[in-house]
Design a protein around this nucleic acid. Structure first.
Lengths: 227, 227
DNA sequence: GTCTATATCATGATAGAC
DNA sequence: GTCTATCATGATATAGAC
């Protein structure tokens, strides 16, 4: 029995997924080559095609590995809140907290690669490739519907169209923040030890998002007349 | 005299820049090859190296062509506001409007390629490549300093650290919104003719951002104690 | 399941004719 | 300023030994 056989059955897949997560972020899906990925994973060049079938299938596997559990956990967080509320509508900040908290708990996990994935995800949301967009839309649809319904119950006076836009803005703020938080010079002034303190970031982000969600309605009517 | 000589002197450069703007968005800086770019521009493969020196230099030229005038115009908008105010601090919504308006005027310009560029820019902000980050930071620094100073005067009671984070959030909301607005399924429900109505989007976005900027302070102290 | 070797084609860059 | 031809390298994918 060789030493090799002691490894977990799917260690090669895991090593490839971890390497892909890091390198897709650094170079993009097209820019990261299979040679880069397999070299970083310490596996043979042929291993990607053997285990995943193609580079495209690997991209999908990278996204699904963490997105499926993340969205499941986001929905579960909402389920728990609604159970506690026993029929009453939830507070908007509680809904936002359930969504944001799931993401922020991942970005603290640098060793497990969670931070890499969250940053990769922030870039993937704005990827113009049709296949990527279709996949992301499909993976997010159930969670988005659940959150939209919760917001609608929490803020019945907010017009549906406006809610959809504000969810879009909130989603954007979150994903940009997570994708850019250590790449942008703007926040270079903040204390380095605070930069990955998810608790602190969560408090700041939630305050910002709650205020944006509950902002006074823009005077759309006057804008329409002027146009 | 050939028909060719009637063309503007630098039409080849312009054709390459336009093609690059579109294809860098679709495939990323690494994913778009020089063969793709020159084929789309209808010029020879060697033209990129002749006119720009290298692919990297082309990337920089694509970003500078529109970013330099955009930031100049953002600073000019702030100058005009401060001149009108004659020494009094500006209203936060006026400052936000000056910044956001410049971007939104570009996204209506589909024919001139402005929309492509704005979407490319949204993706570039989160690019992890060090050279790209350094370039973006350098191109934005003057405008950012001016806007930070204006916000500081408008909101003297907001702690500086909090302001920096909120500027980061606002910048993220704007760039994600502009990058993703026609790629994301979330807003598929809105009226198609409204989707690129910059006036309507500006009203919605400004309402969201102003509320976020002026949100009540998060209770950072209690968070710190708990951590 | 992992490896080497290879097939086929694309990549960025350049030299030199026109 | 534009072209063709070419270089060395790297790309995805696969066939077949172990």
């Amino acid at each position: 029995m060789s030493l090799r056989s002691v490894k977990p059955v799917h260690e090669t897949q895991t090593r490839i997924l971890d390497a892909a997560e890091a390198l897709f972020l650094l170079h993009g899906f097209e820019g990261a080559s299979m040679r880069m990925l397999t070299a970083r994973a310490g596996v043979n060049l042929a291993a990607i095609n053997y285990h995943f079938g193609s580079k495209d299938a690997l991209i999908e596997a990278v996204l699904r590995r963490r997105l499926d559990p993340m969205n499941t956990s986001r929905i579960a967080a909402l389920d728990r809140l609604e159970e506690q509320a026993a029929g009453r509508p939830l507070a908007p900040e509680a809904i936002i907290g359930a969504f944001v908290g799931t993401s922020l708990r991942m970005i603290e996990d640098a060793r497990g690669g969670g931070r890499n994935f969250i940053r990769l995800l922030g870039r993937t949301y704005t990827d113009p490739d049709k296949r990527i967009r279709a996949l992301i839309g499909q993976l997010y649809a159930p969670a988005m519907e659940r959150y939209k319904a919760a917001f609608t119950r929490a803020l019945p006076e907010l017009p549906g169209e406006e809610l959809v836009w504000r969810m879009h803005f909130m989603f954007g703020t979150l994903s940009y923040t997570l994708a850019a938080t250590d790449t942008v010079q703007l926040i270079a002034g903040c204390k380095p030890e605070d930069r990955y303190d998810a608790r602190l970031l969560e408090a700041r982000l939630t305050a910002f998002l709650v205020a944006g969600l509950m902002a006074p309605l823009p005077s759309v009517a006057s804008v329409r007349k002027a146009a």
